[in-house]
Design a protein around this nucleic acid. Structure first.
Lengths: 153, 153
DNA sequence: CTGTGTGCAAACATTTTGCAAGCAG
DNA sequence: CTGCTTGCAAAATGTTTGCACACAG
């Protein structure tokens, strides 16, 4: 299977459609609007932000926030999107069309930088093995202050 | 300063008292009950769980969940406790009387195993530096299935 | 047509806040 | 006494669910 990251929008859409079909779900305007918005903005969205943006871009669809939540959950269940947790303050989602990576978050401005480190991943596997765990997933978030925010002080 | 991990309960209590004093806060029965319960149970608590346990152990104090939340936040602000996030499902707290460590969580039974790896910490520092970040904290959680749960299947 | 999808409002779960009374210092 | 602390109830978040109507297949 082709890695999701390299898909054009058309291909991504096809993937989405076949997931829908194989689950007896329907392809709707709202679902497409949400997918397209995620695709066109490579940012990290809270459901709320995404909802506002979809409303702004496709006002005629009158998409409700309920549908945004439902669609994000659907995408996540089917590995087309991933979510990041931020304590009590909810989640942020991103399209899963990127290779695995982790996040570094600036505590001042909220900027999220993505990175990937295979050495760390290998060490994680080793640790899991040592404790008898079979890893299914992991979460790594580094918190700090970015160059920009430090310059401003 | 002595590392918090090695403190006896009496010493921990003194630390807590001096934090209270230096912030013009008061030492109350409820606050002590919460601290003592955390100390005596080296588990990871949700505010709700802790609230129930404190109520059970010190019913005469009639401690409200509001106070548990307020005290946990107070302890966390003063580095006597740390919280872990679990998506939308709230947080878990632990007394900060342990050296730095990360967590590995069994997705079946919810067991949390603590571990520490200085090699990973060093790599994280290097990554941050490469992106111009100054790290203040990090979060690493490995998700998987523990030996026990795999044996049962 | 059938059954899934939708928006709305209401329900939920978790955490925070306003308030009047209580108690530590 | 002063003013921080408490419990309660209410508010605030963030997310999910029930329902009647809409619409995809």
């Amino acid at each position: 299977m082709k890695s999701i990251e390299s898909l054009s929008y058309e291909e991504l859409l096809d993937t989405f459609k076949s997931i829908l079909k194989s689950n007896n779900l329907k392809f709707t305007m709202q679902r497409e609007a949400i997918l397209r918005t995620l695709y066109e903005h490579p940012d990290h969205f809270t459901p709320e932000n995404l909802y506002l943006l979809v409303k702004e871009k496709y006002p005629e669809l009158n998409t409700g926030i309920t549908t945004v939540y439902r669609t994000l959950n659907l995408l996540e269940e089917n590995k087309l999107a991933t979510s990041l947790s931020f304590g009590t303050q909810g989640k942020k989602f991103e399209l899963g069309n990127k290779p695995h990576h982790d996040h570094m978050i600036c505590e001042v401005c909220g900027t999220i930088v993505e990175f990937e480190d295979s050495e760390i991943e290998a060490l994680q596997q080793a640790i899991a093995k040592a404790h008898g765990f079979k890893l299914t997933d992991h979460l790594m978030q580094l918190y700090g202050i970015c160059q920009n925010c430090r310059d401003e002080q």
